[in-house]
Amino acid sequence: MTSQLLGPAEVRGIAAELGLRPTKKLGQNFVHDPNTVRRIVWAARLEPDDVVLEVGPGLGSLTLALLPAAAAVHAVEIDPALAERLPRTVAERAPELADRLLVTAADALRLRAADLTAPAPTVLVANLPYNVAVPVVLHLLAELPGLRRGLVMVQVEVAERLAARPGSRTYGAPSAKLAWFADARRAGPVPRAVFWPVPGVDSGLLAFERREPPPGPSREEVFAVVDAAFMHRRKALRGALADWAGSPAAAEEILRAAGVPPTERAERLDIAAFARIAAARR
């Protein structure tokens, strides 16, 4: 089964019909290149029984490419007009696949598992709004434990940051927090010309595969350490964690108990080390 994908003329036509002017506030940059959405679906390595969660389907360019490759697609759209129009776009261009589409009009940052009807999503595939990409990915991985992997299109700097390893210049709190949930990697660039309107930044693909988190402390406890450590990332951890621990001396004691040198810096630690620090405070 296939679907008729949207090109530049179709994207602009639907937008005109809706009186839509893409807004920076909602991060609306719509993909209008069929080859790009085919590439994204291919890179997502979907299995026939996968259930996709697509955040920000917009006018439906990626949705139409996902439907033939998955058992179902949950499309979560914050713009009510776009959420209402999407089923009609699919019915017009892929009528035999229309029953695979499940639309939820909601803000992905506030989405709860209970907001989605069965079947539960197993893969996140989305062109994410640049301004909320990091919190959306982290929120969905926390809220939807059935998400096993994902492929998201984000600003290239965000992809670099999320896929960064300890010791690299782009490694930071987002990198460490994503590592709690998953292994992440860069999955290629996306040219600006495939979007309407053309964004002022470059885009890239980020792939991730869920894994078991470090044993011991809760995610909230570990993330509190990550946030404290990176708030003063230029300081040695003895000083950076002083407020969190109660004093520099207390921080040093906790760090030594966790097997972390007090003179180490946050950007050198992997998520397992942050978990050991959180456990040593208990």
Rank of each mutant, 00 (worst) to 15 (best):
A229E: 08
Y171N: 02
L205G: 13
V154M: 09
S175K: 05
E47H: 07
P119Q: 01
E17S: 06
F208L: 14
A126M: 04
P248L: 07
L124Y: 05
R12Q: 15
L162I: 10
V103Q: 08
A91W: 04
T36K: 03
F30W: 10
R281D: 02
P22H: 10
A94W: 00
R233F: 07
V194D: 08
G60M: 09
A164Y: 03
L86M: 12
T122D: 04
V41C: 05
A142R: 13
V125H: 07
R281T: 04
L5V: 13
T2E: 13
G150N: 10
E96S: 11
E267N: 08
R110N: 14
G200W: 03
R39S: 15
V137C: 13
R161L: 14
E96W: 06
A228Y: 01
A113F: 05
L144G: 05
G13D: 09
T122Q: 03
E77M: 14
Y171D: 03
V194C: 14
A159S: 07
V154K: 07
R268I: 06
A173P: 10
P199D: 10
A280P: 06
L26S: 01
S168G: 12
G172N: 02
A9R: 14
L59T: 11
A193K: 05
L140M: 12
A163D: 09
G150Q: 12
E77S: 14
R165Y: 01
G60K: 03
L128D: 06
R186N: 08
A106P: 11
K25D: 12
V136L: 15
L151A: 10
A44P: 08
A94G: 15
W244A: 09
V132S: 09
R88N: 02
A250Y: 00
E54A: 07
E252F: 05
V260W: 00
A126C: 07
I78R: 15
A44Y: 09
D202H: 14
D33C: 08
A257R: 15
G259W: 09
G146L: 09
L66S: 06
A75L: 13
L269K: 00
L241E: 03
R169M: 04
L67T: 04
I277W: 00
L62I: 13
L62S: 05
A44L: 06
T104F: 09
R268E: 11
V137S: 06
A179F: 01
D115L: 02
L237E: 00
D49N: 13
A16D: 14
R12P: 00
G27H: 01
P135Q: 09
F223C: 08
F274P: 02
S247D: 08
L5H: 11
I14V: 15
T122V: 05
D33H: 12
